[in-house]
Amino acid sequence: MTIRIVLICHGSTEALHRAAFPLDEELDDQGKRQVAARRGSMGDGAGRAVCGPSLRCRQTASGLGLAAEADEGLRDQDAGRWAGRALADVRAEDPDGVRAWLTDPAAAPSGGESLLALIERVAAWLDAPRDPGGGRLVAVTHAAVMRAAVVHALGTRPEMFWSLDVEPLSSVSLTGGNGRWRLRFPQTG
């Protein structure tokens, strides 16, 4: 059974501008404007929609005109005790921890979720059996979840996670199922 999953990154937030590990925060004014400008851009063929349980994902989905149900499998990477803090502050206090977080996929120095655990969780979500019904599932989620999905889909090394840039409201389409995925880069405009 083939399905297309369109992953969309939530809109802009204050934590993004501060280079901070986010808490459950709302979209900032810029994010709200960007989402409003894209409202209805998913077209009639949106199919079923889901979103991460965070406020920023729910606001993005709603702002895009999607009737999305929250899905725990799309939650952001758990930043543990670093949540809410700027990366620069954490680096000044715990440089070895930040270095481990960026270089060792199994490390979880914040007490949160390691990169390997994130990738495994997202892989399980992607590969879960689902009814292709409408053939398309739109999922509003986080940059980390999108990176993990691409790493899994390509079957590449976890360290490649850090080579992927995901901007607010960017999207990637994955087509396939049963553990076999192809990336599809949709046309714009």
Rank of each mutant, 00 (worst) to 15 (best):
E159A: 12
Q59D: 06
P22S: 15
R38K: 11
G155Y: 12
G179Y: 09
D24C: 03
L118G: 03
G189I: 10
F161V: 07
A128N: 07
S41R: 06
V6E: 03
G112S: 10
R147K: 15
G135F: 15
S62D: 06
V166C: 13
E120I: 05
A19N: 13
R48K: 05
L7W: 03
M1H: 13
G63L: 05
V122F: 02
H152Q: 12
P129G: 14
T188W: 11
E14D: 13
A123I: 08
G155C: 14
L23I: 06
R75K: 06
L102M: 13
A88Y: 10
R81T: 08
T175A: 13
A19L: 05
L66C: 12
M160G: 08
V138M: 08
S41T: 14
D89G: 05
P109W: 00
R121K: 13
L64E: 06
D96P: 00
S163A: 11
R56C: 01
C51W: 01
S163K: 13
A107R: 00
Q77V: 06
G189C: 12
G179V: 07
S41P: 04
G52P: 01
S54D: 10
Q77I: 06
L102W: 02
D94S: 09
L154F: 12
D78A: 07
C51Q: 06
S163C: 10
E69R: 15
R56G: 02
A153N: 09
D94E: 13
L66P: 11
I5S: 02
P158I: 14
G43E: 08
R136H: 12
R130K: 09
R180L: 07
D44Y: 14
W181D: 01
S41Q: 14
I3E: 01
A107W: 00
L74I: 02
E159K: 12
A149P: 04
I8A: 08
D131E: 06
G177A: 15
E69P: 15
E120H: 07
R182M: 13
A117H: 02
L64T: 14
F161N: 03
F161L: 05
D104Q: 09
Q77T: 02
L115N: 03
T13D: 10
L7C: 08
A117F: 00
G134F: 08
L126M: 05
R136Q: 11
S171D: 14
L74V: 04
H17P: 04
S54E: 12
W125K: 02
E14N: 07
I119H: 01
R182Q: 15
